[in-house]
Amino acid sequence: MNLLTVDQCDVDIIYENAIRGSLYAVNDDVKRGFITFDGGIRIGLCGEGVYECGEMQTMKNINSLVIRVPHNVYGIADELKSVIKKDGVIKNTILVAKPFSGKTTLLRELARVFSANNKVVIIDEKNELSATTKGVSYLDVGESNVLVGINKTDGVEFAIRNLSPEVLVTDEIYGERAEDGIKRCIEGGVSVFTSIHSSSLSDRIKNLFSVRVYLSDDPPGRILRIEE
């Protein structure tokens, strides 16, 4: 069997090419442990953290990488479409699953499908949903408007004030600030589609979303159950 063995030299070459010799340009992402490459390819980094005055400055001596290649899977949101939109009302929806369960792929497809008839804004903080490079989305998000590299709290403000969305799509809510942003959005009358890394939901989150979709990681993307 011909197995490709990756050594430290390969890791260094991939890392160097991923940051394009310009750490300053991607260091905000590096500090959070990842780099987003062209086409939305996300590279998770494993190395040593560099701290100064208790604050992480960068990551050095990268020793391993987790490369995730995003892609569109058309048709996977068809089952959900009728559940989410009833009598012209689009319900707030959250996808719940462990990592590598297809949450982002399903979210992207939901954005694409709903953007055909509704004004959809995507807040793509990690550039995974749309894989936008120089204003061009490499993944199919239909007619959605995409805010890239903006955190959820700011993104919600931008979207509500300037883009008058009917549906707001954002990936992986984490932390109280992000939750507050989403809450503000829902209270403002905008429907929200989002996802969360979890196998269960707190009551606080449950109360925000009238449709809760639980996904399986084996195979990824399979809907386990839908709560309404």
Binding site: R20, G21, S22, Y24, A25, D28
Partner: peptide, 12 residues
């Protein structure tokens, strides 16, 4: 200038 504004990569 690019470093200050974190705009483009050095290679570009």
């Amino acid at each position: 200038e690019e470093v200050c504004l974190k705009k483009n990569y050095v290679r570009e």
